[in-house]
């Protein structure tokens, strides 16, 4: 897949290091806890969790999870229903706070106590339900909760300009009017608005929960393109998906959750469809199966 020339380079705002080369590793470690050792030492983690645990009453939704997100790469988060994927990203988005463990952002320990803390760090989340207001228009949704004002009145002109610029940067060009109600958009367009909303706030990491689950083939392709555009702008993307085809199309790294544990995380080259399915369904990762 190619990108327009003006998007081929890294995003202008991004000053982090270039994405680490993905090792084509046959030397995958075979135990889950050390799977990430396959990454080269100079892989730069924008986000890292160390042993985070989150309980809902008696249910341990996350147990001792060590999850890594590489700067400027697409990380796919896989797992069966109830594996804890949504819980993990909610911990990163500040919806929940884990009971145990530590989260590092740019290598520094942080406590993500609420959504505002997360967005303050540059973590933006696009939820499965998108969290858009159907009765508001595209601009209004993109700026919801952070409206621009001048002398206490909404500055619609500035907001519309900025929203238009962001949509153009993401090559979202065919919405009929930027002032149409979001309820009138198609699934793919709604996803685009939700992503644009996230990106507009100088996001450094965008989390997407099942962005293609409700979409048809053509719309899915658009969303995958959108993910690539984000990456080309130097933004780290964490994407939850049940569709392995999608995952193998866009992901640089794959992490698999199994019953709240991180079963494996490794560069995408360490997986094929079979080993990924095996990890998702059994929680085990068998490196020797790769390429066999």
């Amino acid at each position: 897949m190619t990108f327009p020339a003006d998007q081929a380079g890294a995003g202008p705002d991004y000053s982090g290091p270039a994405p680490a080369a993905v090792p084509s590793s046959g030397a995958m470690a075979d135990t889950a806890d050390t799977a990430d050792t396959a990454d080269t030492a100079d892989t730069k983690w924008i986000l890292e969790t160390r042993g985070i645990t989150k309980r809902f009453g008696a249910v341990e939704a996350l147990s001792n999870v060590n999850f890594h997100v590489a700067a400027g790469q697409v990380t796919a988060l896989l797992g069966d229903n109830g594996a804890g994927k949504s819980t993990l990203i909610k911990c990163l988005a500040g919806i929940w706070e884990p009971e145990e463990g530590q989260t590092l952002w740019d290598g520094n320990p942080v406590r993500i106590r609420g959504p505002k803390v997360a967005t303050g760090l540059g973590i933006e989340t696009v939820y499965q339900d998108l969290a858009l207001c159907d009765n508001l228009d595209i601009v209004q949704n993109m700026f919801l909760g952070r409206e621009l004002t001048s002398s206490r009145l909404l500055d619609e002109d500035s907001m519309e300009k900025q929203a238009r610029r962001t949509l153009a940067e993401l090559s979202v060009t065919t919405v009929r009017s930027i002032r149409q109600a979001v309820g009138s958009l198609s699934g793919g367009q709604r996803q685009a608005v939700a992503v644009a909303k996230a990106v507009m706030q100088n996001a450094r990491m965008v989390i997407m929960d099942e962005p293609t689950a409700a979409l048809g083939v053509a719309q899915t392709a658009m969303v995958l393109d959108l993910i690539r555009t984000l990456r080309s702008r130097g933004i780290a993307v964490v994407v939850i998906s049940h569709n392995l085809n999608d995952v193998f199309q866009v992901a640089d790294r794959i992490a698999v959750l199994y019953l709240g544990r991180l079963a494996v995380e490794a560069p995408v080259s360490a997986f094929d469809q079979q080993s990924a399915v095996y990890a998702i369904t059994t929680g085990r990762f068998d490196a020797t199966a790769v390429g066999a």
Binding site: A131, C133, N135, L136, L144, G145, L153
Partner: peptide, 24 residues
Amino acid sequence: GRTRFGRYVYAIGGNAEAARRAGI
């Protein structure tokens, strides 16, 4: 129509959860 308050009234009526997540 022209203040944050008004915008938030519509947002809450349209999708309260979205409004909550937007930090309103």
